[in-house]
Design a protein around this nucleic acid. Sequence first.
DNA 1: CTTCGACGACGAGGATGCGCATGGCTGGTT
DNA 2: AACCAGCCATGCGCATCCTCGTCGTCGAAG
Lengths: 221, 221
Amino acid sequence: MRILVVEDDDRVARGLLTALRHAGYEVHRVGTAAAALAAPPADVVLLDLGLPDADGLDVLRELRRRQGVAVITVTARGEERERVLGLRAGADDYVVKPFGTAELLARIEAVLRRTRTARASSESSRSLELGPLVLDAASRTVTLRDVPLSLTRKEFDLLALLVGRAGAVVSRDLIVDQVWQSHWEAPSRTLDTHIAALRGKLGDGVRIETIRGVGYRVTEA
Amino acid sequence: MRILVVEDDDRVARGLLTALRHAGYEVHRVGTAAAALAAPPADVVLLDLGLPDADGLDVLRELRRRQGVAVITVTARGEERERVLGLRAGADDYVVKPFGTAELLARIEAVLRRTRTARASSESSRSLELGPLVLDAASRTVTLRDVPLSLTRKEFDLLALLVGRAGAVVSRDLIVDQVWQSHWEAPSRTLDTHIAALRGKLGDGVRIETIRGVGYRVTEA
DNA sequence: CTTCGACGACGAGGATGCGCATGGCTGGTT
DNA sequence: AACCAGCCATGCGCATCCTCGTCGTCGAAG
């Protein structure tokens, strides 16, 4: 597993490299945004949002465009706005300075675990089918009986996850983990809302069953 | 087939090892509870409940937590209380000292026969079968003679546990431990209620026997 | 046969989890 | 600068499920 560290502070960077290499990763380090975009491909990018030569968010968006790379942002304490912007721009997770090695490694492993299936499937087929429903990951398009559907981002991610495990029950926890990163604790009706939206747009054609107390399951109608 | 013998008495242990090895089993022996839990995985554990360094029942419960291992308890004559407690804690069978080699081998084979299907299926697909009953863990679906059944959450968990150990007695305590975590103390008719619901939905086709004072056992009708 | 303990049947009460509608917020768009 | 689509939080209503008490019944032991 290769990790790219984008960090301008030499001291911080050196500590990171030592810890990560010690954990068995292959690590490269760059200090500028330009170098980050030019660096060899990695599986995970540790991105400091406080870079000198460019807005870290631009780097993040560009990295996000390249499929299959996971991004963890690094921000200084208190810069909550930066963190949120990072997540919205597509970061998979974040850590706040100062952070411990154990926490960082845990988050790296969690992100890798989350993105493994996505990465594996994105390298092989990239298109899912379930009866009259066809889902193309590359173009993020959905057709139902050859009629294109217009889904929002969350709706697409949610449907892709469910169709990817069609026939099996997908727990609410897992859905929140994958579609929304950072599993929030507070019970919320947000997931239900998106499920309802999907049911509305899919009409019949695909059934989304509720498994009370567990999660959801999609089956061919 | 690997057998783990947990026995502190050297003389008894030596006799067991000889007999079991002669019967063609691969046998390991430990003399303490701690060593038992640290030992390499086995298919059957012969557990002496009269251990010096810990309550044998604790060992039993921990072993039971590891799927696919069968446990036969060994107790001294007359310690009826121990035997019942052992069964309640999830033992598959028991022998009473002093016992003959023939009886022991017969019980081991019987236990292995009972648990084979459960072990094999748990390692391959996660779907359980018992005669006309098919239970799929991933989709949480149940069919009886190809007719889908609608079970509630507790009902499904309960049935899965029972079918997973089909043919063996599953103690009430163990059921409460697994299906409801945190064993409640107050005697309550909750478990009976769910058993009754299952019996109603399964009709014939599957028998759920009551073992008074111990637990339940499911068998093909 | 009697007695005792455990289980089965049943029926509320309460708890839980979900669907849905609404309103505020934010980032992107024209 | 104003607008708008998408997203998230909240609250209420409802259906379902779980729980638990009581009583009747049955099996086992003496």
